[in-house]
Amino acid sequence: MKLLSFLITIIFLATNLHIFSQQKEIQIKVHHVSKNVYMLVGQGGNIAISAGEDGIFMIDDQFARLTPKILKAIKTVSEKEIKFLLNTHWHGDHTGGNENMEKEGAVIIAHENVRKRMSTDQFQKRRNRTIKAAPKDALPIITFTKDLNFHFNGESIYAFHVHNAHTDGDAMVYFGNSNVLHMGDTYFQGKYPYIDLDSGGSAQGYIDAIKKALLIIDDDTKIIPGHRNLSSKAELKEYLTMLEEIKTSILTEISSGRTEEEVTKNPKLTKKYDDLNYGNWFISGEAIRRTFYISLKK
């Protein structure tokens, strides 16, 4: 028993030391995007802030454990208070710091479906896990159904809902004067997207969301994706082409009577984009084929 207890202690210490070392290594990098808009990159979804005379307008906040580093990074840009925090959707790598930011005085805003999902336990069938409801102080206190306008730091900030894309509560945020669009997880720059079917996401909705973004932006717009690198309209158009080509291929297979497993296991359907390394990150070619099949088969 003593040996067993000793081994458990060693494993516990090793695990926690590993977690601590990982957290210690994470750095929050600040990128000046345009005028008074900045992108913060750390672990989780990309953060955007508008910093000006009215204070800080913030989009997403990654994980709770990173809040001190995020606040320190923001201070390198502005000493002003965080007035508003808008969540692009409900996932924890974008909302994990909500409770901490609320204590800093931020008013939390999101689409109404974000609050609904954060308010109750969420069972995700395809990942076989349950995500516990968020604490009360982490919930958005202002919700919207379609769009919302802010007049803050000398510019118009337009937040708008896109239907059943990455989830059922996605919002994009466009900074008018700075000409910057934050797309949340309706855009994974350079990689296949994660379409959360258990949270109301859909392949067609994801495509439609990108089409809506393209109607709003111009060739000079800077795009902040939910994950990865700063992007442009030209890149987003290429991304849309990729999604539409995969959709066409999968629909052809469905029309031919192919099963979910046959489509999932057929690498030829996504080979063009697998070869361009779209699938060597979070979502593989196999995973995107399965997701499109399930979503389009409905």
Rank of each mutant, 00 (worst) to 15 (best):
G201S: 05
D121N: 11
N100K: 09
T252D: 11
E79H: 08
A234P: 04
H227A: 12
L3P: 03
S295Y: 10
T120S: 13
D60E: 13
I288E: 13
A110S: 15
Q189K: 05
K72V: 02
I8A: 15
T76Q: 12
Y273N: 09
H227M: 05
R126T: 02
L4F: 11
F84H: 04
L269R: 06
L269Q: 07
G200V: 02
G105A: 09
V114T: 15
T241M: 13
Q122H: 08
N164Y: 00
S21I: 07
N164S: 12
H89N: 11
E245R: 11
V180Q: 09
E25L: 14
I28F: 12
K268M: 07
A213S: 12
D61C: 14
F150V: 03
N100V: 02
D121G: 06
N177S: 13
A234Q: 10
S119Q: 12
H227C: 04
G201R: 00
N266D: 15
G184H: 04
G184L: 03
Y293A: 01
L17P: 01
A213T: 00
D93T: 10
T145A: 14
H94K: 08
L269I: 05
K211M: 07
G45Y: 01
F63D: 00
P193H: 08
T167S: 15
T241I: 12
K211V: 02
Y158L: 03
P193R: 03
P225R: 06
I108K: 01
D208I: 00
N280C: 11
F144E: 04
L139F: 10
T291N: 12
P140Y: 00
V41E: 13
N100W: 03
H163E: 00
E238F: 04
S249Y: 06
Y158W: 09
D220Y: 07
L148M: 13
G279C: 10
G42I: 04
I28P: 11
K211A: 05
V114P: 14
I26Y: 14
L197T: 04
A64F: 06
M183Q: 06
D93I: 07
D198M: 03
I223G: 09
L296T: 02
S202K: 00
P135M: 05
N87Q: 07
I142D: 09
N149V: 06
N46W: 08
G55Q: 03
F12M: 11
T88Q: 01
I141S: 15
S156G: 07
K271C: 06
I59Q: 01
G257R: 10
T264P: 12
I207W: 02
K2T: 08
N128E: 14
N179V: 04
P225F: 06
T221N: 13
I246A: 14
A48I: 02
I207C: 05
E262G: 05
L148K: 13
Y38Q: 04
